[in-house]
Computed example of a mutant assay.
Amino acid sequence: MDEDNKLQFPSLPATKEDLLVSTAACRHVHCEILPGLFLGPYSAAMKSKLPILQRHGVTHIVCVRQDIEANFIKPNFPHTFRYLVLDIADNPVENIIRFFPMVKGKDTCNSHLSCSECPVLVHGNAGISRSAALVIAYLMETFGMKYRDAFSHVQERRFCINPNVGFVHQLQEYEAIYLAKLTIKMMSPMQLGRSFSLPAGMPGSRKRSLEEDEDFGAMQVTAAQNG
């Protein structure tokens, strides 16, 4: 890839030291992972916590649960905050990679999970495994971080995080996946043609369209899960 087309990522912003909490307390409150990005348990999004959420300027909430939890983990302020509800089981065989684009997508604060205009709280039941994995993936893709560095950054601010072993393996695989997708997006049509066309004369020789490149990224996700 040309020098001008190398992937560039923003620097990781710092949080305020006085926002860090003890290991015991972090199981009951949300923690600021980045300015405007909070991670916590469901108890941090209950009705009694509305004044705290408003004081921190939260405008968006990512609620992580599975069907059997829907009766007790639910959006409590549908008219106050914008919600993204994800059906994810805290199970090592759950394919959590497929949810990463949704968390960073257009439905979550105009394609930015964390920004000054719309602070976001990400919560599951305990704020330890599923929601933590989503936040780690966001840091990896947004700031070009390796899994171990993103994990360490989140754990320093919320000590009790512990993604299950299946999520850890998927996060480790995700680095290659998101880098490949970003590289494809940055390549010119001519570069794409050179990268994805078969040698002249071979059956089925053609250039991939941009739409097909998205399918190629999806195939990588499937391959990572089946590998």
Rank of each mutant, 00 (worst) to 15 (best):
82 R>Y: 06
131 S>K: 01
116 S>N: 10
99 F>R: 00
219 M>A: 15
65 R>F: 13
33 I>D: 08
90 D>W: 14
213 D>H: 09
173 E>S: 15
160 C>H: 11
200 A>S: 15
143 F>S: 04
120 V>Y: 00
152 S>W: 10
112 H>I: 01
73 I>F: 08
27 R>E: 10
132 A>W: 04
167 F>G: 02
200 A>C: 14
21 V>W: 06
108 T>H: 00
115 C>V: 07
42 Y>V: 04
92 P>W: 03
127 G>K: 04
11 S>M: 07
192 L>E: 13
91 N>M: 06
206 R>G: 11
205 S>T: 14
123 H>P: 10
219 M>N: 14
57 G>E: 05
77 F>S: 08
149 D>M: 08
147 Y>Q: 12
55 R>D: 09
31 C>R: 07
199 P>W: 00
210 L>E: 11
97 I>C: 07
108 T>A: 00
43 S>Q: 15
123 H>E: 03
102 M>L: 15
218 A>I: 13
53 L>Q: 02
198 L>I: 11
111 S>M: 08
216 F>D: 05
102 M>H: 15
179 L>F: 03
188 S>P: 12
176 A>T: 12
165 V>N: 09
129 S>D: 08
197 S>M: 12
139 L>Y: 05
90 D>L: 09
222 T>R: 05
102 M>R: 14
40 G>I: 04
198 L>E: 13
63 C>K: 00
212 E>K: 05
184 I>C: 13
100 F>L: 06
112 H>Q: 05
152 S>L: 15
84 L>D: 00
104 K>Q: 02
68 I>S: 06
162 N>S: 15
12 L>D: 07
158 R>V: 07
201 G>Y: 12
153 H>L: 12
117 E>Q: 07
159 F>T: 09
31 C>N: 15
122 V>A: 01
148 R>A: 14
87 D>M: 15
151 F>K: 10
21 V>I: 12
152 S>Q: 14
177 I>N: 01
99 F>Q: 00
81 F>D: 02
36 G>Q: 06
34 L>S: 11
83 Y>H: 06
215 D>S: 14
89 A>M: 08
91 N>R: 06
1 M>G: 09
125 N>Q: 11
